[in-house]
Design a protein around this nucleic acid. Structure first.
Lengths: 132, 132
DNA sequence: CTGACTGCAAACGTTTTGCACGGTA
DNA sequence: TACCGTGCAAAACGTTTGCAGTCAG
């Protein structure tokens, strides 16, 4: 796996706990601390929340993970990918990635604000197919 | 003032503390809990943080205020206005409103995700004029 | 074998709650 | 006067830290 190298480059050891966190993020896409905690507990009954936090922070530090802040909800974490936006269902809280083209908006915002802008964090809000 | 009526409609009394919080939001645009606390302390030395939180929450409840979540930073609060986006300077943390046109993006995201989307929360990140 | 990781417990910072008193309407 | 709001203290959360024992490399 690719991420093993990435961890090693950053002096992070590949432990079973860490592996399981990454798996959880990989298979579920967007998860919060509690989701991760519960996922780990089934494999490691005595796992500590401190371990989760330390790992999440360490992996955010090396930009392997990213935190996604969502209005009116808990933050979730995801594996860092190409820049992208998120859609969130306000009924079931499901989250999905979307690749919209933001270059035009970025230009617009730069001109309006006189800031030199490089990135955008976008969360769209609405109702998913199933909830409708 | 307009907001007096709005508060009364929602069974919220117009107290000096509450007034000062609103003033602070009105004059500074985007402030966090500590900013508000400090602003109140100069007028009401014995003000309690609990009062701030209760007021903020009450006014968010009636949609008079909104919380703005910003990647890698503390949340700030603002008076609820027309939908708009924010630009943030990663040097000095200054925040500015920008009115970019999001309708196109919203349509794009709706099609890609199959969600029925109604709103977007956008934060642009970059460097402001002064910091450059 | 060495340094990093885990799990525990304690500490910390932030937010919420309960209650007695005071103020708004 | 009847509520609602304030301030205080305590409690409840969420997150971080220090440490001793364990594990990966």
């Amino acid at each position: 796996m690719n991420f093993v190298a990435l961890l090693k480059e950053n002096n992070l050891k590949v432990t079973p706990q860490r592996l399981t966190i990454v798996e959880e993020l990989y298979t579920h896409g967007h998860v919060n601390i509690d989701d991760i905690y519960k996922a780990l507990q089934s494999k490691f009954p005595s796992v500590s929340l401190a371990t989760i936090y330390k790992n999440i922070n360490a992996m955010i530090e090396i930009s392997f993970l990213s935190e996604v802040k969502i209005p009116k909800q808990k933050s979730v974490y995801e594996l860092t990918k190409m820049e992208h936006s998120h859609v969130v269902c306000s009924e079931c809280n499901s989250i999905m990635d979307v690749a919209v083209d933001t270059s035009d908006l970025l230009k617009q915002a730069s001109e309006l604000s006189d800031y030199t802008l490089s990135r955008s964090s976008i969360v769209f809000n609405g109702i998913c197919k199933d909830c409708k």
